[in-house]
Simulated scan of single mutants.
Amino acid sequence: MALQVGETIPVFSAIDNHGDLFESTTVIGKKPVVIYFYPKDDTRVCTEQACAFRDQYEDFKALGAEVIGISSDSLQSHIKFVTKYQLPFILLSDFDKKIRRAFGVPNDLLGLIPGRATYVVDKKGVVQMVFDSTSGKIHIEKALEMLKTM
């Protein structure tokens, strides 16, 4: 079942793009967080989305928020993606799709491709916005709009 506005983010852990174990409790419940799920590193729309988050990362930081990207790509893929596009935020490797399932992120394109969804979470760990769209760039605008109202 998909995570809804008003629900608390599940606790999760995964390997980040530095090869370290990331525990969600290190940020969730302490500051606003934007968690975005995307299908695949270094594909056209996913790259546009990641670069749009990169280009506006300082706007997110100014609002006190952290940005976390999640896909099922490997650590090696994330390292290449982060390096190639100079991404300043955390990417998590959800290789077994446990986090995706915990959030209930649906698949796109007749269920063949992992879905694209963005969650804006307040500093208490409660979902304030869920945005599900195949368009990558609009996720950044929607997330910033929500953070400005929190």
Rank of each mutant, 00 (worst) to 15 (best):
M1H: 10
L3N: 02
E7W: 11
T8E: 12
P10Y: 03
P10C: 00
V11F: 02
A14N: 08
D16V: 08
D16Y: 14
N17P: 11
N17H: 15
H18P: 00
H18A: 06
G19T: 11
L21T: 15
F22S: 03
F22K: 09
F22W: 06
E23S: 11
E23V: 10
T25I: 06
T25Q: 12
I28Q: 03
P32T: 05
V33A: 03
Y36C: 01
Y38E: 00
P39S: 04
K40H: 08
T47L: 01
E48D: 12
Q49M: 06
F53Q: 00
D55W: 09
Q56E: 09
Q56C: 00
K61P: 09
G64L: 06
A65W: 13
A65C: 09
V67Y: 06
V67I: 11
I70G: 01
I70E: 00
I70W: 03
D73P: 12
S74P: 12
L75E: 11
Q76P: 02
Q76V: 07
S77Y: 08
H78D: 05
I79K: 15
K80N: 14
V82C: 10
K84C: 02
Q86N: 15
Q86S: 15
Q86Y: 14
P88H: 13
L91M: 15
L91K: 10
D94Q: 11
F95I: 09
F95G: 01
D96Q: 12
K97A: 05
I99V: 07
R100C: 06
R100N: 13
R100M: 08
R101L: 05
A102Q: 09
V105C: 03
N107Y: 15
N107A: 10
D108S: 14
L109R: 14
L110F: 15
L112E: 08
I113P: 12
I113W: 12
G115Q: 04
R116Q: 10
V121G: 03
V121W: 04
K124V: 01
K124Q: 15
G125E: 01
M129W: 09
V130F: 12
F131N: 08
T134Q: 14
G136Q: 03
K137I: 14
K137M: 10
E141H: 14
K142D: 02
E145R: 12
E145G: 05
M146I: 09
M146E: 06
M146P: 04
L147T: 07
L147V: 06
